[in-house]
Design a binder for these strands. Structure first.
Lengths: 192, 192
DNA sequence: GAAAGGAATTGATTTAGATCAAGAATTATT
DNA sequence: AATAATTCTTGATCTAAATCAATTCCTTTC
């Protein structure tokens, strides 16, 4: 049940077997089914979720009712409304399972306990945050300067799992293009 | 010399006068002149810079030689290549002063010392990081779903200082539009 | 203070991608 | 298995913004 989590941690820091056992106990396993929501915009985000299995998306709904996919999360990724989780303010994002999923939830008190008990986990979360900021900056630049095709090809290279498993509507929304444009791009890319 | 920094900190956490004095000593004052670079892409980002006075920008140069403004920083803001600073890897951003500037530099060893000496500063940096992530997410959504005019109006509302002080080329680059388009938008906005 | 070099404006044209619309192909539901 | 409901594809048209180009307006700088 914790393989992905352990892998994710050991990728970044070194923990003793005892520390690993301690860390495990701070996470609450939870299964959710396709189409279920883990978080509704307006609620406070009580947990950040580590994905052991499945695929989720976070998204906002704008004034005109348009959905914007902020992030996907598959095996080994973390998802949540970080800002709401850390500050206790209302969440601006919704989080929905796109496939049946197995999650490991971490509440804020558990997180604080854990960082106190296993201080090396500070480094783990710092690295995650840092990677996240780098990824967001890349996405800003890409959304400003790449063509729709370049955006799609980059996503395909960086996250083939998402391209294979998410619907084209969701992928298009994530890339900031229409589903029609994505469909045409896929056709072109296929025949070369 | 430290007014802006103290204001920024006291905005988020409460420190005793003694703690404030301690914090001050970890920062190195530095003046740089317009057009000077604080960081070149490829170097390691040794310092994050708190802006006491002036205006700076960080930007990347893509393969075709095109510049992309990542961020502006004016009084009370922090600028640096966070990823390079924290990880020690090569910076991907350049940082340049757009006006003569007075900075307070924080090196990584100083930062670690400071967090150790005044642990409440952890919270300060956590809040800064968190705000940064929220801002980046907003920017991604805006760049995908807003028109050029909406992007400009939002920047004008959120950061009038930048709109007034940065060149239109830089503002256009930051917004992901051409200088010509920005010029036309400004004309329209002015006559209403 | 004149010349030079950018920066900003304005106009004409092009284009990538959006929008509108209708049909084909999957996927769900009973 | 049959029907309903999405999702995806394909085509025709439209539009916001890019590109190309020429002029005017500011700053530098000598």
């Amino acid at each position: 049940m914790h393989e992905q989590l352990i892998k994710s941690i050991q990728d970044k820091i070194t923990l003793s077997p005892e520390e690993i056992e301690k860390v495990k106990h701070f996470y609450i396993p939870k299964k959710i089914r396709k189409r279920q929501y883990l978080l509704n915009a307006g609620d406070v985000c009580q947990y950040i979720a580590f994905v052991e299995k499945g695929l989720l998306r976070s998204f906002t709904v704008d004034n005109d009712g348009g959905e914007h996919v902020i992030q996907f999360a598959l095996e080994g990724w973390l998802i949540g409304d970080m800002s709401s989780f850390l500050s206790g303010d209302e969440a601006t994002y919704n989080i929905e399972a796109l496939e049946d999923a197995e999650l490991l939830l971490l509440s804020k008190p558990s997180m604080e306990d854990m960082l106190h008990t296993v201080p090396k986990m500070e480094t783990y979360f710092r690295i995650l945050m840092q990677n996240h900021i780098v990824a967001l900056n890349r996405r800003v630049i890409s959304s400003m300067s790449d063509t729709a095709e370049q955006k799609y090809l980059k996503l395909m290279n960086n996250c083939p799992g998402i391209v294979n498993r998410a619907s084209q509507q969701n992928i298009a929304s994530f890339l900031g293009i229409t589903p029609e444009t994505l469909s045409r791009i896929r056709k072109q890319v296929a025949q070369k």
